[in-house]
Amino acid sequence: MKKTTYLVQGALIAAIYVVLAFVFAPISYGPMQIRIAEILTVLPYLTPAAIPGVFVGCLIANLYSDAGMLDVIFGSLATLIAAILTYYMPKRWLAPLPPVLVNVVIIPLVLYFALELPYWLSVAGVLVGQIIACYGLGYPLLLVLDRYKLLQK
Rank of each mutant, 00 (worst) to 15 (best):
M1V: 14
M1A: 15
M1G: 13
K2D: 15
K3T: 14
T5S: 15
T5G: 11
Y6I: 02
Y6P: 05
L7P: 06
Q9C: 10
G10L: 11
L12E: 10
A14Y: 09
A15P: 01
I16D: 11
Y17N: 03
Y17C: 00
F22L: 15
F22C: 14
F22S: 14
V23T: 11
F24Q: 05
P26Q: 11
Y29K: 03
G30C: 07
Q33H: 12
I34T: 14
I34A: 10
I36M: 14
I36H: 09
A37Q: 02
A37L: 00
A37D: 01
I39T: 04
L40D: 05
T41Q: 13
T41A: 12
L43I: 00
P44T: 03
Y45H: 02
Y45G: 00
L46W: 04
T47S: 14
A50D: 07
A50Q: 04
P52H: 13
P52K: 00
G53W: 01
G53S: 03
V54L: 01
F55K: 05
G57S: 05
L59H: 06
I60E: 02
A61Y: 02
D66N: 15
G68A: 01
M69I: 14
M69C: 14
L70K: 03
L70W: 12
D71H: 06
I73Y: 12
F74V: 04
F74T: 00
G75Q: 10
G75T: 00
S76N: 08
A78W: 00
T79N: 07
I81H: 13
I81R: 10
A82I: 00
A82N: 04
A83V: 05
L85A: 10
Y87E: 08
Y88Q: 06
M89D: 06
P90V: 07
K91N: 04
K91L: 12
W93G: 07
L94A: 07
A95L: 09
L97N: 02
L97V: 08
P98K: 07
P99M: 02
V100N: 07
L101D: 04
L101W: 06
N103E: 09
N103F: 09
V104W: 15
V105D: 02
I106L: 07
P108D: 08
P108R: 02
P108C: 01
P108H: 06
V110P: 09
V110W: 09
A114D: 09
L117P: 07
W120I: 08
L121E: 13
A124E: 12
G125S: 00
L127A: 13
V128F: 05
V128H: 03
V128Y: 04
V128P: 04
G129A: 05
G129Y: 05
I131Q: 06
A133H: 05
C134G: 13
G136C: 10
L137C: 05
P140L: 02
L142I: 13
L145W: 08
D146V: 03
D146I: 00
R147G: 14
R147S: 13
Y148V: 06
K149T: 13
Q152T: 15
K153R: 14
